[in-house]
Write a protein that binds this DNA or RNA. Structure first.
Length: 726
RNA sequence: GGGCAAUUAGCUCAGUUGGUUAGAGCGUCUCGUUUACACCGAGAAGGCCAAAGGUUCGAAUCCUUUAUUGCCCACCA
């Protein structure tokens, strides 16, 4: 077979992937030899709501390198794949799509909406899976899982029920972050802050002056709050009643003394709107004050606003200010006031805090079986190094976040997701956990009037259980013993941007459910950014399609470029030139192989390097360097310094092996006394480099290996299961 | 307000526990098509490793301060 002058990735990658898949070696149960020690990575399931982006290419590359390396080291490797229904994220994506079509979920039935999203997600799932294959992912497709698979939901429901019975999950009507656009409550993490310059108004409130940037919330205000130590207001006593004129007429205000008031801020006096402000809500709770809803869930004023009822808050604001001005209650306006406003992290609309019933998980409550709280178990895990974040600087970040953790709201008022398995008795108000969805009468009073909880789980509640849920689901589905064999897993590899969303929750939920860490090490990668260091996002339209890159340069080049000069945890600005350079490297390797094969084909020398007789200084030098490379790159890989390993292998291959040794070999091959050892050295160096390079550039290395096999120049098995060089 | 990081060649970035002339990709310049490779080879230019001070036999690497940049967390009506 004539070998082409240059390597063409497109011709071989699909073929090679097929060979791998047919070998069965992605599946740990089908690996040859006696492999005892497991090595497991649970793949962070890509969201099945969009085509894949370079972030996926990065995580697939890193995880595939780790898995292939360990597989060649003789481990029983399981890389568990899956896709995520991604509740809120997907619903947002789909609602945008509806919006473009002039539709809205509010004019659809819940069932129809769910069905449409289901179809949409199924289509994306397949696209995503095919993309993972093009990237060379050697994950076990036999175990492929979806977050809405019944076996997964069963595990999730089991956890919910256990937590409810343990008193860790409770329902509360406290104030929550409400997005008026998406019509759902959100966790703190799902909101962001932005600095805005808005007018800050000072109004006369009886004898006081109060400041606010949100006059539209003030209709129901009937408590005036000041610090108990504030000397300016010492003549007012807690509980004093005052008659005063307010926006829509006279009100009776009650004086409240509370230490939450900052004496330095404004006039040191404020009125409170407990239904629409978290701080005010807390003050009201402390003093058991009345609370009145002023703004509805769509962000419009309620009848309490009188003439302003029905207006959107931002439209109402200037009108309300005008009215107060006319009434002579506007004292002054500070136009230079800057403050942070809270926004929905997805749509950027203002968060409008609302009092809504939500399910919460207690983060700091000790477990009834005597174990510490979820939060403390996670902190202990780091403390005891049962879980280590190898991207070390994130340990501090993790710990700090953990220490300040508040209870986690896990219910969402969205339709796309796992339904909360709860029914309520309309008569006796009993809460009934109904996992099978087949309970039709109240367990307590026998009433048949049951209503289903309309909410769904926060996606992170289910994906937070992913490491053990997938393995449990495998066992239920396939009769495997995955939980026994593969849990706890070895490595969780994911982006630092979901450290809190996901990693933290996995640690807590895993300890809760299994009493074990979900994984031993956490490797956090950075974000792939565009060439201007901008975050790639659909909304910015700067997303680069990895498949296009693969078409042009090949998967191996993309993979090598992604890990080549990237330290863990650092963001990666993608330069296409780098990928191009790595394609050249692949071609270099190809031609090294071509040269060696060409020389070996025309000879019949016995290949062996154990007998150094007839070796030259050049032979010995390259073998020494190769030995050092094996040691060093193995060490780097074991310690997650993939980029270091990649650079060293690159440097050796090109600048030691090709530039120096192969050049020297051309002379040595002319000498019959040197020829045998020279050929042996060439062959040995090549096969070793192929092995070392295989985790990084699996396609080209496997392809060359296959060609060597066809010429009886390599062992019969696939390169992917060859023994790692020692 | 609190915290974390970064600052190294024209550009984008590596540099594990401090140890010989600080590296890579791309770019620039010169030369070269001798059958592995022009997706190449040979060679060259280009860095007081942000600044100052300190520790050390020795610092890009450790410490202190400063400057600039980026990010995270919290959030005051």
């Amino acid at each position: 077979m004539e070998l082409e002058k240059s390597y063409n990735a497109n011709d071989v990658e699909e073929k090679i992937y097929k060979i791998w898949q047919e070998s069965g070696y992605f599946n740990p149960d089908k690996l040859p030899g006696k492999r005892k020690e497991p090595y497991t990575i649970i793949m962070p399931p890509p969201n099945a709501n969009a085509p894949m982006h370079l972030g996926h290419a990065l995580f697939v590359t890193i995880e595939d390198i780790l898995i292939r390396f360990q597989r060649m080291q003789g481990k029983r490797t399981l890389w568990q794949p899956g896709t995520d229904h991604a509740g809120f994220e997907t619903q947002v994506v789909y609602e945008k799509k509806l919006d473009k079509e002039g539709r809205s979920r509010f004019s659809m039935t819940r069932e129809d909406f769910y069905k449409e999203v289901w179809e949409f997600v199924q289509g994306n799932k397949h696209i995503t899976e095919n993309s993972l294959k093009r990237l060379g992912a050697s994950c076990d497709w036999d175990r492929n899982m979806f977050t809405l698979d019944p076996e997964i939901i069963k595990v999730v429901y089991g956890t919910f029920e256990k937590m409810y019975n343990d008193g860790l999950i409770y329902k509360s009507g406290r104030i929550c972050n409400w997005c008026p656009k998406h019509q759902t409550g959100l966790a703190d993490l799902e909101t962001k802050y932005e600095e805005r310059q808005e007018p800050f108004y000072y109004f006369k409130y009886g004898p006081f002056t109060i400041g606010t940037s949100r006059p539209e919330t003030k209709f129901g205000d009937k408590y005036v709050v000041m610090h108990p130590e504030d000397k300016r207001y010492k003549q007012y006593k807690h509980g004093d009643k005052l008659e005063l004129e307010w926006i829509n007429g006279p009100v009776t205000a009650t004086v409240i003394k509370d230490e939450a008031v900052d004496m330095e801020f404004g006039t040191g006096v404020m009125t409170i709107t407990p239904a629409h402000d978290p701080i005010d809500f807390e003050i009201a709770q402390r003093h058991k004050l009345d609370s009145e809803t002023v703004i509805d869930k769509r962000g419009k004023l309620l009848p309490i606003a009188g003439e302003f009822a029905g207006l959107k808050i931002l439209d109402a604001r200037p009108k309300i200010v005008d009215k107060l001005k006319e009434k002579g209650l506007l004292e002054k306006v500070d136009e230079n006031y800057k403050h942070n406003v809270q926004l929905c992290y997805k749509c950027g609309n203002l968060i409008e805090p609302q009092v809504v019933d939500q399910w919460y998980i207690a983060m700091t409550k000790s477990l009834p079986d005597g174990r510490p709280s979820l939060r403390d178990m996670a902190i202990n895990a780091l403390e005891k190094k049962e879980v280590e974040i190898v991207t070390e600087r994130f340990e501090k970040v993790f710990r700090h976040w953990m220490e300040n953790l508040r209870d986690w709201p896990i219910s969402r008022q969205i339709w796309w997701g796992i339904p909360i398995p709860v029914k309520y008795c309309s008569d006796c108000k009993e809460v009934i956990i109904d996992i099978q969805d087949n309970i039709s009468s109240c367990k307590k009073c026998g009433s048949a009037k049951l209503t289903k909880d309309p909410d769904t789980f926060d996606t992170w509640f289910s994906s937070g259980q992913w490491p053990f849920a997938t393995l449990m689901a495998n066992d239920a589905k396939h009769g495997t013993e995955d939980i026994k064999n593969f849990f706890p897993t070895q490595v969780m590899e994911t982006g630092w941007d979901i450290l809190f969303f996901w990693v933290a929750r996995m640690v807590m939920l895993s300890y809760y459910k299994t009493n074990k860490p979900p994984f031993q090490k956490v490797y956090l990668h950075g974000l792939v950014r565009d060439k201007d260091r901008q975050k790639m996002s659909k909304s910015k339209g700067n997303v680069i399609d990895p498949l296009g890159i693969i078409d042009t340069y090949g998967t191996d080049a993309l993979r090598f470029a992604l890990v080549f000069s990237t330290a863990a945890g650092n963001d990666i600005p993608l330069a296409e030139d780098k990928i191009k350079g790595m394609k050249h490297f692949g071609n270099k390797l190809w031609n090294i192989a071509r040269f060696i094969i060409m020389n070996l084909e025309i000879t019949n020398y016995k290949l062996q390097i154990t007998n150094p007789e007839g070796s030259t200084e050049a032979d010995r030098a390259i073998l020494t360097k190769l030995e050092a490379l094996i040691k060093s790159s193995t060490n780097h890989l074991e310690n997650f310094r993939l980029h270091e390993a990649a650079q060293e292998i690159y440097h050796f291959t090109w600048h030691e092996f090709a530039d120096v040794y192969i050049e020297a070999s051309k002379v040595q091959l002319q000498d019959e006394n040197l020829k045998a050892f020279t050929l042996s050295t060439l062959h040995y160096s090549l096969t070793t480099v192929l092995k070392l390079l295989h985790p990084f550039m699996p396609f080209i290395t496997e392809h060359i290996w296959k060609i060597l096999q066809e010429k009886n120049l390599a062992e019969k098995n696939l390169l992917m299961i060859q023994e790692w060089p020692k």
